[in-house]
Each structure stands twice: as structure tokens, then as C-alpha cells.
């Protein structure tokens, strides 16, 4: 996996791929983007926290029209991962309301999205139904 990089900075690869959030040291608000300060309390000190890889579908949509280069239809979802809300696609499932349900348990999964000319593979994450 040495020739692989995560699609976004908040995805950690390795044997146990998972998401990592910046957690505000004073109010515990969690963010996935680069932070200047906390939107909850304006605090400026953060620590890294691992986000559970199991979650529950709190909302979803099946997108049929998207920007060029995006395969449709795909399932976009809002996942509750043990109290932290995460956004991602639901993969390894038919993109149909008969197969994706509100409240459905899901787990994080990773997959390659392509290689650059140096042969480095970018790895993205999504969620798949948890049996």
C-alpha cells in the first residue's frame, strides 16, 4: 500500500482504514476540514480523534444528475458514526430506494479511484451495508 494515498486528508489508510476528525479541545465539536478556529466556540486548539467506522444512515438521496465525470446514479448519504455525522457515498449496493433505507446500518469501506503517471493510487472511502 506504500504507493497509495488517501483521497482526502481526513482518511487514514493502512490495515484499519478510518476517518480522523479535528476535535475542538474546549467544546469537542468535530470537523473534517482544515481549521482556523472552532465554529462552535471560536477555540483554536484541536486534537485528532478517530471516527468509528460503523454507522447508521440518517439521510440519503439517489443522485441521477451530476457533474461531468461522476458516474450516476449514485447514493449520497449522511451517516451517523457513533454520534459524529459523516458524509459519503453508499457503495456496493444497488442505487435504488428498494435497497437503501433510512436507519440502515453501514460500515466504512475503501476503494481505488485511479493512478497518476507515477503509479500512485488514490484511495477514496464510502460506506457499504453492514450485514
Amino acid at each position: 500500500m506504500s504507493n497509495a494515498i488517501p483521497f482526502v486528508n481526513y482518511l487514514t489508510l493502512g490495515d484499519d482504514p478510518h476517518l480522523v476528525a479535528h476535535e475542538c479541545k474546549s467544546c469537542s465539536a468535530r470537523f473534517f476540514d482544515r481549521r482556523n478556529a472552532c465554529a462552535g466556540c471560536s477555540g483554536t486548539e484541536f486534537q485528532s480523534v478517530d471516527i468509528p467506522t460503523q454507522g447508521e444512515v440518517r439521510s440519503f438521496t439517489i443522485v441521477a444528475f451530476a457533474a461531468p465525470g461522476i458516474e450516476v446514479p449514485f447514493v449520497s448519504a449522511i451517516i451517523d458514526c457513533g454520534g459524529t455525522t459523516v458524509r459519503g457515498n453508499i457503495v456496493n449496493v444497488e442505487a435504488s430506494p428498494d435497497h437503501v433505507k433510512l436507519g440502515m446500518p453501514v460500515k466504512l469501506t475503501t476503494f481505488p479511484i485511479g493512478k497518476d503517471e507515477q503509479g500512485v493510487e488514490a484511495i477514496n472511502f464510502g460506506f457499504e451495508p453492514a450485514a
Binding site: I5, F7, V8, N9, Y10, F32, D33, R34, T61, V63, F65, A66, A67, G69, I70, F74, S76, A77, I78, R87, G88, N89, I113, A122, N124, F125
Partner: peptide, 19 residues
């Protein structure tokens, strides 16, 4: 701000308004 190597819209959820 996410340090993404490509656009996140459609690859990590959706940014389209209908979605």
C-alpha cells in the same frame, strides 16, 4: 480545505442542490 486530490462533489456525497 479537505486536501482532496479531486473534486469531492459526487465522490464523497453530493453538492448538487436537488441532492
Amino acid at each position: 480545505r479537505y486536501g482532496a486530490v479531486a473534486g469531492v462533489d459526487g465522490r464523497i456525497g453530493t453538492d448538487t442542490m436537488p441532492g
